[in-house]
Design a protein around this nucleic acid. Structure first.
Lengths: 163, 163
DNA sequence: GTCCATTTGTTGCAGATGCAACATAGGAGG
DNA sequence: CCTCCTATGTTGCATCTGCAACAAATGGAC
C-alpha cells in the first residue's frame, strides 16, 4: 500500500476555508476595534495610541531606556521610532539624554508632562477599550487571547525587520 | 436586603484583565500576521494588499461598481478610495467609466491588466496567508473566527465614518 | 418650477511614512 | 595602532495620508 504522492509533498498552497475565515475576521475586527479606540482619543484631543504606548513602555521600564530596547517590544522600525521621538520631544513629552556607555545612542525618559499625558490618555483609553470589547465576556476574552497568542509569531518580531 | 449601589450604575471604566489581554493580543498578533503577508507581497514586487482587495471586490461584484458601494465593505474613507483609485488607474489596473444614472459619480471596472495582477498576487498572497496562520489548526481557526465575529462591530462600520 | 439640505466624490495643504543612504560608534582581528 | 564589519540612529526625498474645504448632482419641500 502506497501513500498518495500529494501527501508527501509541500504544504498546501491554498489556505483552508476556516483559515481564510479567521484571516478575514482578524483583519476586519482588529481594524474596527483599533479605529474606535483611536477615534475616542482623537475626539478627546489626544495624540494617537503609539504615543501612549511609548510613554507607557518608558514608565514601565522605570529607568531611562535605549530606543533599540523599545523598538522591539513596540513592534516598530528604528527610523519610525526616531521620528516619533522627534515629535514627542518637540511637545516636551520625552527627553533624549546622552548615553555614557555608548556614544552612538541615548536614553529616553518621559518628562513630567509625559507622565501626565499618559495618565490623562488612560482616562479615555480604558473606557474606549471597554466599549470596543464589550461584546465578549471575560471567558471569551481569555479564549480569544489564548488563540491569538497561539497564532502569533510574537517573540520573533518579523514585522520590524522584514528581510 | 439592598443591592450595592455600584452594581446599579454605569459599566466599569477599567477593562478587566482578560479584556486587556485580549486587546493586547489582538493588536500585536493582527499586526504581526498582516505585516508578514504585506512583506511577502512587497518582496515579490507587488503592491499592497489594499490594491488586491479593491480588485477582488470589483471582480466579485462582476459588474461596474460605484466607489461608495466599495468604500463600506472595504472599510475605507471616500477620499482614501478616491486616491487609491487614482493610483490604480494610473497603473492601468482599473477604469473609471461614466455613470449615466448619477452624473456625480462613476463606475469602477478592473482592466484585463487588473484581473491579471489580482491573480498573480493571489499566487503570493495565498501561501503567505497559509504561512502566517500555520500555527493554528482548522478547528482553532473556526473558533477564532467565531470569537472575532462576536467581538466585531462589523456591519456598523464605525471606523470609516467617525463622527 | 425654485430652494436648500444631502449625497457623492475630489483636492490643497500640512504632516507622516517608507526606503535607501548616511553618519558615527563599538568591537573583532590583525 | 589600523582596518573592517556590525550596531545604532538619523535624514533626504518621494510618496502617502488626514483633514477640512470644495464642487457638482440629487432629491425633497414648497
Amino acid at each position: 500500500m502506497r501513500l498518495q504522492q500529494s501527501q508527501l509533498k509541500t504544504a498546501p498552497r491554498i489556505p483552508s476555508d476556516p483559515i481564510q475565515r479567521a484571516w478575514i475576521a482578524l483583519g476586519r475586527v482588529s481594524q474596527s476595534v483599533q479605529c474606535s479606540v483611536e477615534n475616542a482619543l482623537k475626539d478627546a484631543g489626544f495624540p494617537e495610541l503609539s504615543w501612549y504606548t511609548v510613554l507607557w513602555e518608558l514608565e514601565r521600564a522605570g529607568k531611562p531606556t535605549r530606543p533599540k530596547d523599545l523598538a522591539i517590544p513596540l513592534f516598530i522600525l528604528p527610523y519610525q521610532l526616531s521620528r516619533l521621538v522627534d515629535r514627542m520631544e518637540k511637545e516636551g513629552l520625552v527627553k533624549r539624554i546622552q548615553c555614557k556607555e555608548d556614544k552612538r545612542g541615548h536614553m529616553l525618559e518621559p518628562t513630567a508632562k509625559g507622565f501626565a499625558l499618559r495618565k490623562a490618555m488612560w482616562a479615555i483609553y480604558a473606557p474606549a477599550m471597554e466599549e470596543a470589547m464589550k461584546r465578549i465576556t471575560n471567558t471569551e476574552a481569555l479564549q480569544l487571547a489564548a488563540l491569538l497568542n497561539k497564532l502569533g509569531n510574537i517573540e520573533h518580531v518579523d514585522c520590524a525587520d522584514h528581510g
